[in-house]
Design a protein around this nucleic acid. Structure first.
Lengths: 205, 205
DNA sequence: ATATGTATACCACGAAAGAGGTATCTGCAA
DNA sequence: TTGCAGATACCTCTTTCGTGGTATACATAT
């Protein structure tokens, strides 16, 4: 009985590469592919693969959201995140949301196949460079939802008064949020806070 | 006589996909691969392929710099930039530096093969969505080297006085540069200038 | 020879931003 | 129920930012 794999990525060429790898493994079979999140959810439901390779960045919804949607209906779903290097916050969210492994697109094909086997066998796998990136900020406490919202507005060039009006709060409260944001991220000013937020995957431009 | 292709990308899985495509075309042959810029230069010199597929983001030097290095020795080199969606400034730099085509990694395999044939035949090719992104800022005049330098410092959270000291100029001059940066990018403040600069590929975090 | 673009510098002014403190009102967890 | 974290609000004060104008020096292109 071979391992049934679903591949989700908007890069057609990369799916082609995965297909080549999977089909060259005698113990694996590629049952379907998807190029966006909603298609992924649909294909999963239809084929119920043993292992799913999922990109983090998809055109419609994020790979994490697609994974969450799938795992609501199929809590046993074994999903591997396969992406380029992302911010630690995204990695952490993916693992917290139940990803069984985190693979980089630079990973050699042999290793990819090996991790698929491990995940299929119930193991988890996170490469050392990813783990290292995670522990860097392990003790940090993350931004609150409100703080992320404010940071997003800052990146759009909004001044404090504008943010206050948009969120229907006082400008003083906005200042408090920004102070907390800068403290938590270790930023010297609002601009660096945005830069760090983007690098760490807390906000997107 | 088949078209001899070199593939340059740090994503092993993507190279695998390209290899599958190329080798399934009767009129093409993959002569070599590279996973970084310096390797690309070396492999090009060794094999002198008809067409090169080059990623924009590589671990060592940028795909554009690798292309420039190659075209210094081989001005006839036909190089296709194959990347995810990037900022218009990077696209423009690539085309100005002599790229014959610009392909997205989402492009269907058939089209990739077709563009390789076109480029081999001496044609140029830029997909409409890329062209559209380019014309958006065609009339803008770009930032000067000095302005980019200042913008980079701003993204690092440096205040004007610090930037002045770093560049050994007066704080007033820094202010003038920042004013020009904001005007050119259409930014409301320094923070949005950084956000736009990153989105458009003018600076990197 | 004369524009044009780039980088440089200084001044003055008002508008934001950032630091500090204190305080209230939630909801949730121990 | 007591405590804690999060969101809210108001105050003061200093620093930085952003805008305006003017000007010089240098290189290049016309």
């Amino acid at each position: 009985m071979s391992i049934r794999v679903l591949s989700v990525d908007d890069h057609a060429l990369l799916r082609e590469g995965i297909a080549a790898i999977i089909n060259s493994q005698p113990d694996m079979e590629l049952v379907s592919q998807a190029s966006n999140g909603n298609e992924a959810i649909q294909q999963f439901r239809e084929h119920q693969p043993d292992v799913t390779l999922m990109d983090l960045r998809l055109p419609d919804l994020s790979g994490i959201d697609a994974m969450i949607a799938i795992r609501e209906q199929f809590p046993e779903a074994r999903i591997i995140m396969l992406t380029t290097f992302e911010g630690d916050v995204e990695i952490q969210r993916a693992l917290e949301a139940g990803a069984r492994a985190y693979l980089l697109k630079t990973t050699p094909p042999r290793e990819v196949a090996e991790v698929i086997r491990q995940v299929h066998a119930g193991k988890k796998s996170v490469p050392p460079e990813i783990a290292a990136r995670l522990v860097e900020h392990l003790s940090d406490d993350g931004l609150t939802a409100r703080e992320v919202e404010v940071l997003q507005r800052i990146s759009g060039g909004n001044r404090n008064k504008e943010i206050a009006d948009l969120l229907c709060i006082s400008e003083e409260t906005v200042k408090v949020h920004i102070k907390h944001i800068m403290d938590k991220l270790g930023a010297k000013d609002r601009t660096q806070a945005v830069a760090i937020g983007v690098r760490r995957g807390i906000i997107h431009l």
